[in-house]
Amino acid sequence: MKTVLITGASSGIGKSFCYGFAKRGYSLVIVARHKEPLEKLKQEIQKEYNVNIRVIAKDLTQDTCRQLYDECKDLDIDILVNNAGFGDSGAFLDRNLNKQLNMIRLNVLALVELTYLFGNDMKKRNSGGILNVASIAAFAPGPYMNIYYASKSFVLSFSQALAYELRDTHVSVTCLCPGPVNTDFFRRADLLESPMWKFAPPASPEQVAEKAIKGYFNHKDLVINSLSGKLFGLAVKVVPRKWMLKMVGMTNGQR
């Protein structure tokens, strides 16, 4: 039985990834900050699917990626899903600095370290794959959410470059760039009043995860789940950058 490790597994898209891979017969390693919701998720999934599930509670903003890797030494992780991440909104100089730094630690540094550690094992076996979760925010600068947008731009660029480097191996890399999703993310990022909800109605996490998993198995290096995301990606290519900055800034800044 193959094994998938999923970070940010306790809710939202991460939780839907767990169900999506469980129904395909994968053993799961589910990772999030708090153990209780993970244990609850484990029980819920095992009521439906006969799969092995290992629960690991880790706060990946606290330099614990090596610990997580070491706790999985007895397993061959066939698929790594770097889903953990969070956002924040508001003018950069008005926000809490430590929260911004933790966003970089989780959205960028933890993703890079886990990709490096588990990716090297996959390269040695010449099998496996990595599914990184970015955002359509990766396509443009994001005034009033600048660290989040920049972090997701990094994830997209990093993922596509790594996919190219591994093109002659049996290790694949897929990057998911979802648009708005109906999860707790928008509340945590203080975006419930954003016009984004009107311009791009949110998708369900189940729909997003399923499309990402299918894209991964079809060896796509980029998965965009929605028409609005595809249109935004196209607009970035044709609309002058200063206009795009203004449009995104107005969308993110209006409350």
Rank of each mutant, 00 (worst) to 15 (best):
Q62G: 02
S89N: 02
N102R: 09
N50I: 07
K40F: 13
L117M: 11
L109G: 06
N107W: 10
R54Y: 14
Q100S: 12
L109D: 15
N83H: 00
G85P: 05
R125A: 08
D76N: 11
T64D: 01
G87V: 07
G119H: 07
T61V: 06
Q100W: 03
L41W: 07
V112L: 13
I79K: 03
L38N: 04
D76C: 09
L93G: 08
D63Y: 10
R95A: 14
M103V: 09
D94R: 11
T61Q: 02
C65G: 12
Y116M: 08
D70H: 05
L109Y: 13
Y116C: 09
F92C: 13
L114D: 14
E48Y: 02
L38G: 06
T115R: 11
S89K: 06
P37E: 00
K124A: 10
N82W: 02
E44P: 09
H34S: 05
I56N: 07
Q43K: 13
M122R: 05
T115Y: 03
E113L: 07
F92Q: 01
G90P: 05
E113V: 09
Y69V: 07
G90N: 01
R105T: 09
N50T: 11
D94F: 15
Q100G: 11
F118Q: 03
L114M: 15
F92S: 04
H34K: 05
S89P: 03
A84R: 04
D121I: 05
N107S: 08
L80C: 00
Q67C: 00
G85C: 00
R95M: 12
N52P: 07
D88L: 08
I77Y: 09
E113A: 10
D76A: 14
Y69A: 05
I53L: 05
M122P: 15
L117A: 04
M122W: 07
L75G: 02
I104D: 12
R66A: 10
I77C: 00
G87N: 01
K73Y: 00
L106N: 13
L41V: 05
D76V: 10
T61L: 00
K40M: 06
L114I: 10
D59F: 09
K42E: 11
I77A: 00
Q62F: 06
G85S: 08
N102V: 04
P37A: 12
L93Q: 13
Q100M: 10
E39L: 14
E36V: 08
P37Y: 09
R66W: 12
E36Q: 06
Q62W: 07
L60F: 01
